[in-house]
Simulated assay, not measured.
Amino acid sequence: MAEQPIFEALSPHEAMRAAIAVLRSVQPQIAGMSDAETVSFAPLAEELGRLTDGVRVRTAGEIDARSDRMLDERLSAQHGCRNGIELLER
């Protein structure tokens, strides 16, 4: 079955907010799943975790790249930070 790009028309921010809302509604339902549903759900949760980790790493890398000391308009400096790491920590 091909995956449908349900968030395609949304901006990245809107898509992430929508995904968060969906996950918040799913989480309480896990306890009510059957054993078979729970076992088949686990790989989906793992895939989601890997994708989420990838988004986090990609975003952190982008912030770090845009905060490079060689740039005139460093992203970190625009937010009062010394570097990308400090910006991410805040």
Results as ranks from 00 to 15, higher is better:
M1T: 09
P5V: 03
P5G: 03
P5D: 12
P5L: 08
I6S: 08
E8D: 13
A9M: 11
A9H: 15
L10G: 02
L10M: 15
S11H: 05
P12L: 04
A15T: 01
M16K: 03
M16E: 06
R17C: 08
A18T: 10
A18V: 01
A19E: 06
V22I: 09
R24V: 13
V26S: 07
V26M: 11
V26Q: 11
Q27K: 12
P28N: 05
I30S: 01
I30G: 01
I30D: 00
A31V: 13
A31H: 04
G32V: 02
M33Y: 07
M33T: 12
S34Y: 06
A36N: 12
E37V: 04
T38L: 09
T38K: 05
T38I: 05
T38Y: 13
S40I: 01
S40R: 14
F41T: 03
P43D: 03
P43I: 00
P43Q: 03
A45R: 00
A45N: 02
E46I: 04
E46N: 06
E46A: 09
E47S: 06
E47T: 06
L48D: 01
T52H: 05
D53T: 11
D53A: 14
G54R: 01
V55W: 08
R56M: 13
R58M: 13
A60E: 14
E62M: 12
I63V: 15
D64P: 00
D64K: 05
A65E: 11
R66K: 12
R66H: 08
R69D: 09
M70H: 10
L71V: 04
E73Q: 09
R74F: 01
S76P: 00
A77C: 04
A77P: 00
Q78W: 05
Q78Y: 01
Q78G: 15
Q78D: 15
H79L: 08
H79T: 12
G80K: 01
G80H: 03
C81Y: 03
C81M: 11
R82F: 10
R82G: 10
R82V: 15
N83L: 01
I85P: 00
I85K: 11
E86H: 05
E86R: 04
E86S: 05
E86A: 10
L87C: 02
L87S: 00
R90V: 13
R90A: 06
